[in-house]
């Protein structure tokens, strides 16, 4: 996604050729260069990929299935990590109060955290981009209404909005129904609290692009507005959107963890990292710190890595900062 690629929307070579061309240009380009020059960024990329891979392949990677009641033995409960006295070689990071392997719990927890995080970022992105494009390209009343709503929402912190939506859903939905749809509720709650940033960014760029000649040319030859928006304007406003999405993934994961920690997010039957921290928190004072610290550390490392990637991407895509 190089900066200044203005004529992408115009008819050109076939998709395959363009893809090959794009890949080649990517490895020749500034972004790849700045990537290979920064060890911190490469490490964070590696950590992020590791997390995502182990989340996707959790059933293969994790030593045990923490949801399989048959594999859990209460006699193994509250074992410390193997490097401490009383550690069991079967459980690298120890076990929780039910005898669940902490390493497996963390891997499956990261799977749920990342799943909710990705889904809410995608949802917020789709919503924000659509509203931003409409707002920026159409202008007028549509623009005024959407941006007023955005203004109002910006005055409230995202975490509070997510908490309210999740709390409302919890009170409105019957308990057993909520047990099934908690994933969608969370994605909705987190996604709805983050769309404004995308909408504002896309709207700003779309307003700039709208007055450019290539859009006017497209309009003159009779391409319908929807096609212009999606095929001509959208590709040119995607750069900043990708940066926001990366940083938002970190924030979405934190928000999900916070909601779960407060006891309103992911239910304890399929714990995310935040739920694990909340459950483990009860054992902190009895000295079983590993039940809460390992999920917490995993969360912090994941968020830090994604944040570093996002920071780097923002700088790399913005030539003004170099």
């Amino acid at each position: 996604m190089a900066v200044g690629e203005e004529h992408r929307g115009a008819a050109g070579p076939s998709l395959g050729a363009r893809l090959v061309d794009g890949v080649r240009r990517f490895f020749d380009g500034d972004i790849w260069y700045s990537f290979t020059r920064s060890p911190v960024v490469m490490v964070s990329a590696a950590v992020t990929v590791l997390f995502i891979a182990s989340a996707v392949f959790a059933p293969l990677v994790a030593p045990y299935d923490p949801f399989d009641l048959a594999s859990i033995d209460l006699l193994d409960s509250s074992l410390p990590p193997i490097w401490m006295d009383g550690g069991d070689p079967r459980f690298l990071l120890g076990t929780d109060a039910q005898g669940r392997d902490m390493l497996s719990a963390v891997i499956y927890g990261a799977r749920i955290s990342l799943g909710v995080g990705f889904a809410s970022v995608v949802f917020a992105m789709l919503l924000g981009i659509s509203l931003g494009l409409l707002s920026g390209y159409l202008g007028g009343t549509v623009d005024a209404v959407i941006m007023r709503i955005a203004d109002v929402q910006l005055t409230f912190p995202a975490i509070l909005i997510a908490l309210l939506i999740d709390g409302l859903a919890r009170t409105v939905l019957p308990r057993d129904l909520h047990g099934q749809v908690w994933f969608y509720v969370l994605v909705l709650a987190i996604g709805l609290s983050f769309w404004v940033q995308y909408a504002r960014t896309v709207r700003g760029s779309a307003m700039v692009e709208r007055s450019k000649e290539y859009v006017q040319a497209a309009r003159v030859i009779g391409i319908p507005p929807l096609v212009i928006m999606l095929r001509h304007v959208l590709p040119n406003v995607m750069g900043p959107v990708l940066v926001i999405a990366t940083i938002n993934l970190a924030i979405a994961v934190i928000t999900e963890a916070t909601l779960s920690f407060l006891g309103v997010g992911v239910p304890a039957t399929s714990p995310s990292l935040g739920t694990l921290v909340r459950v483990g928190n009860d054992f902190l004072f009895s000295g079983e710190w590993w039940i809460t610290i390992f999920p917490g550390a995993a969360l912090a490392i994941l968020v830090l890595a994604v944040n570093l990637l996002g920071d780097w991407l923002r700088d790399a895509l913005n030539p003004k900062l170099r």
């Binding site: 963890a257 916070t258 920690f261 935040g274 921290v277 928190n281 968020v303 830090l304 944040n307 570093l308």
Partner: peptide, 14 residues
């Protein structure tokens, strides 16, 4: 950067 990456509740627990 670490301060931003650590969720508030984790800081408290630590």
């Amino acid at each position: 950067l670490i301060g931003i990456s650590l969720p508030t509740f984790l800081i408290g627990i630590l």
